[in-house]
């Protein structure tokens, strides 16, 4: 299962690169799309997806609006559209974040930290179980960057994620940059944090850039991956002792397709050095 789920190194599919992607998609192993951007629109974006599908290039849908950590039920119109998208892509898994982004139908369009209590654990696990049951593919839960901690939390993030995985058998999308950003902002050891997760469930890795504001690192997805994050990526792979599908995330001030591919090549080199088999 884990072996089969290894897709190589992928890039986020962005409108700006559509032309390049269609012309030259041989050297990108797979793409991740922001699900919401493809759930209502047809036209060119859909044509690009169909072209990649016809070339058997894997496309993983990655969402931001499931709002797992909200007490609201999953929005049915959202679920219906997600289901259609998954039907079209036939992906090996789909993902979203450990966060909440809406409350009573108001959408904040940002990834807000979840409350880590037993009630919240119950609600989130129930939603993931329902999604996996209905969509019949694994769900991968992504750790977010956060900038505060609440004393209302009854457990640590590691404990919370471990318990969710236990209850749902879901997969993990490990965002290495988010771990790094949080470890600097909250002064903990990043690799120790990763080791404390149910690592056998990690099915995908995100690598991204952040912004150093001076007093705080802020996850921007708008820059090159920093050297420390590359080091943490290597340490993670060494610890996992297996290659993991890796994605270069770059959503703001998106550079040229060539620049993105350079970042992907760096990840490939590290995978090659670690496992000599990519």
């Amino acid at each position: 299962m884990q072996k089969n789920s290894y897709l190589g190194v992928g890039l986020g599919l962005r409108k700006k690169h559509f032309k390049k992607v269609l012309e030259n998609n041989q050297d990108v192993d797979w793409y991740e799309i922001l699900s919401e951007n493809y759930m209502k629109f047809g036209g060119r974006p859909l044509d690009v997806l169909k072209s990649l599908i016809s070339k058997k290039i894997p496309i993983i849908p990655h969402g931001v609006s499931l709002s797992l950590g909200s007490s609201d039920d999953i929005d049915q119109s959202y679920f219906k559209k997600l289901q259609q998208l998954i039907h079209l892509l036939n992906p090996p898994w789909f993902s979203d974040h450990l966060c909440f982004s809406s409350h009573e139908k108001v959408h904040f369009h940002d990834l807000l930290p979840v409350l880590k209590t037993s009630e919240s654990l119950e609600i989130i696990s129930h939603k993931i179980n329902t999604l996996q049951e209905k969509l019949k593919i694994p769900f991968a839960l992504e750790n977010i960057s956060y900038y505060l901690k609440s004393h209302l939390d009854e457990m640590t993030e590691e404990e919370f994620i471990t318990e969710i995985v236990k209850r749902t058998n879901c997969k993990l999308l490990l965002d290495v940059n988010n771990v790094y950003v949080n470890s600097v902002n909250f002064n903990f050891n990043a690799i120790d944090y990763i080791k404390s997760l149910p690592v056998e469930s990690i099915i995908q890795i995100h690598l991204a850039g952040h912004w150093n504001r001076g007093d705080l690192l802020i996850d921007t997805h708008g820059d090159y991956i920093c050297p420390d994050v590359w080091v943490l990526y290597r340490k993670t792979l060494e610890y996992l002792e297996r290659p993991v599908s890796t994605l270069i995330e770059w959503d703001n001030e998106i550079p040229s397709f060539e620049e993105l591919k350079k970042e992907a090549r760096k990840a490939k080199e590290i995978l090659k050095e670690c496992f000599d088999e990519t």
């Binding site: 950590g69 909200s70 007490s71 609201d72 909440f100 409350h103 009573e104 108001v106 904040f108 807000l112 409350l115 209590t117 009630e119 919240s120 609600i123 609440s150 209302l152």
Partner: peptide, 16 residues
């Protein structure tokens, strides 16, 4: 605290 109340306080803060 109930999750619903936690979500609500966040929402009230974000909406001013």
């Amino acid at each position: 605290m109930k999750l619903k109340d936690y979500n609500k306080i966040w929402s009230q803060f974000l909406l001013g």
